[in-house]
């Protein structure tokens, strides 16, 4: 079976500085895969490389067996990969409803249509309503996204990411800055919404990582030093030394 995401020998240099070196990562279809690592290890850069936000200097990225490295973000998105951002990245002046609806439009085939009334597209309306219901923001549908609370914006961020119905979902620190209760809520939301999809997640909260992930990759200085099940990662001496430190005891 081809992997959902296959990263092979990817390098990213900014000038003389190598941010990512010889990155190899394989995520199987339907797997929940967490990427962990210390600050500055290149986790977000890895996300940016896979989603097309930045282009690799060398190496290749495949999505469901097709080469996607070098494609632009919207081309990769149209092939079924969707990502969220670490810093909330929504359409601030538009309402919650409009935010989600915009994310639904391409996937429902309406593209750049300027001859259709956006309010009278039943499948768009139903899907938008469904996603708002899923992320528990139906009661806030007419509020501009910029006026939501932080936790609500993070939920909207996830809603926009899954709205297109992408089969591969990448979440960049979805619970960052959340309280304990909010984190629990977000994790059960993620678990439910990515059911049957491939999930790649960057996360700092180890209880989230070990509770959610089927497999974990550990990224240190732009290089993956270990990849395996949570149990394998816990026992791996290299990981203990490089990252988990006393947390692993």
């Amino acid at each position: 079976m081809t992997a959902a995401i296959e990263v092979r020998a990817v390098e990213k240099r900014f000038g003389n500085v190598s941010i990512i070196r010889d990155l190899n990562l394989s995520v199987a279809k339907g797997e929940r895969h967490a990427i962990i690592g210390p600050n500055g290890a290149g986790k977000s850069t890895t996300f940016n490389l896979i989603s097309g936000h930045i282009k690799p200097t060398s190496g290749e990225v495949k999505l469901n067996g097709d080469l996607i490295s070098g494609l632009r973000p919207f081309e990769i998105n149209r092939r079924g990969l969707s990502r969220s951002f670490q810093v909330t990245n929504v359409f601030a002046r538009m309402t919650v409803w409009e935010n989600v609806r915009c994310a639904v439009l391409w996937a429902t085939g309406h593209r750049y249509a300027f001859w259709k009334n956006v309010d009278s597209l039943p499948e768009v309306r139903e899907r938008t309503a469904q996603i708002l219901d899923d992320i528990h923001l139906t009661h806030r549908r007419d509020v501009p996204a910029g006026l939501l609370t932080y936790a609500e914006q993070r939920e909207l961020e996830i809603g926009i990411t899954i709205a297109s119905g992408a089969t591969v979902v990448m979440l960049d620190e979805p619970t960052a800055g959340m309280s304990h209760a909010e984190t629990e809520r977000a994790v059960s939301l993620i678990r439910r919404l990515t059911d049957g999809k491939t999930l790649v997640i960057v996360e700092h909260d180890m209880s989230v990582v070990f509770g959610l992930a089927d497999r974990i990759s550990v990224l240190v200085y732009g290089h993956i030093i270990a990849s395996g099940t949570p149990e394998e990662i816990r026992r791996d001496p290299k990981v203990k030394e490089a990252y988990l430190g006393e947390e692993a005891h």
Partner: peptide, 10 residues
């Protein structure tokens, strides 16, 4: 509002 994010919704 956000030309960057638009690229990630297709």
């Amino acid at each position: 509002d956000n030309p960057e994010r638009v690229q990630f919704i297709g």
